[in-house]
Design a protein around this nucleic acid. Structure first.
Length: 300
DNA sequence: CTCCAGGGATCAG
DNA sequence: CTGATCCATGGA
């Protein structure tokens, strides 16, 4: 990874970042604790985000150059290269995926700047438990409420993500007061299982996708879709293909002639068709489907 | 007012 | 095993 460090500005700069769009990566619905600071109407885009008990600003110029601050070379290498998946070869991933699939080619032409983040498993798990029958603005709001209530302040109004023990010690009522709704009991069950050591998230890295999914689904409120999101967005398992309502709609449209198919049938189809990088294909297709509102009445 | 939201648990067939 | 219903809540 080739980068420059500006010591006075505490900033790491990538003069070139081909295939990396900060905006697409943060705003494609894989993470929730960030805000756009500027660049809404063109020009350099700047974001501020919280992860790994830190707050980071990321600025991307029109040229594609990216600046990360405040950070150090040591922290950049230890945390942020991994977080943004900067060491992975997305040129190759896209080549493999688009070689024989024209829909992924079209979707990646528009959203090929997305990189699959490597988030902290615990935060990712809670985030996607909250995602069920919800929407992105609301997930962001509730996560903000949870971190304000149970985390500790860092900077810029962000807080650390509360530990499993901290949430396990909260009452159902306290969790519901954050706007979790019926998901409060699910978060509590996850917190108790992780805090007690009954479920060791770090051990899931070493398992294959089938084994990790089985472990994650022991949590009440975690089914195949949420388990797949946790595996893709925090456990580095790019072969999983989280199938939600958007993916169902876009896959039915593109690959099944518009005929209704079960989520399971769609997952099986995607695994065969997209193989080891199915999760990356999923993100391109998901972003594409939402952008065009595929299957909705206001579809573009 | 109704409808819907990055699903999953539960219960019927 | 597959399909219908309910879940708590805010925004459109």
């Amino acid at each position: 990874m080739l980068y420059e460090y500006d010591r006075s500005a505490c900033a790491v700069r990538l003069a070139e970042a081909p295939g990396f769009s900060v905006g697409q990566t943060l705003e494609c619905g894989q993470c929730f604790r960030f805000a756009r600071v500027s660049g809404a109407g063109g020009g350099a885009a700047e974001y501020v985000l919280a992860a790994y008990d830190k707050v980071l600003r990321v600025r991307q110029e029109d040229s594609g150059a990216v600046t990360f601050f405040p950070t150090t070379p040591e922290e950049f290498e230890a945390v942020w290269i991994g977080y943004f998946d900067l060491a992975a070869d997305y040129e190759n991933i896209k080549r493999v995926l688009t070689e024989k699939d024209e829909w992924v080619r079209e979707a990646s032409a528009r959203f090929g700047g997305i990189r699959i983040l490597n988030q902290e498993p615990w935060e990712c798990l809670v985030s996607f438990i909250l995602s069920q029958v919800s929407n992105i603005p609301r997930i962001k709001k509730v996560l903000g409420n949870l971190t304000r209530a149970f985390g500790t302040p860092i900077s810029d109004g962000f807080h650390t993500f509360p530990s499993p023990a901290r949430l396990a010690g909260a009452g159902l009522g306290e969790l519901e007061a954050c706007g979790t709704g019926f998901r409060a009991q699910y978060i509590l069950d996850a917190a108790q299982k992780v805090a007690s050591g009954e479920l060791r998230l770090e051990a899931l890295f070493a398992l294959d996708a089938g084994g990790a999914r089985e472990e994650l689904m022991k949590i009440k409120g975690v089914g195949p879709k949420i388990a797949d999101c946790v595996m893709l967005f925090s456990l580095g398992k790019k072969e999983v293909f989280p199938a939600d309502v958007w993916i169902k709609r876009v896959m039915q449209r593109f690959y099944f002639g518009g005929a209704p198919e079960s989520i399971k049938a769609i997952g099986d189809f995607a695994a065969r068709r997209f193989g080891e990088y199915a999760g990356v294909a999923q993100e391109y297709l998901y972003a594409y489907a939402r952008d065009r509102q595929i299957g909705k009445k206001n579809e573009a």
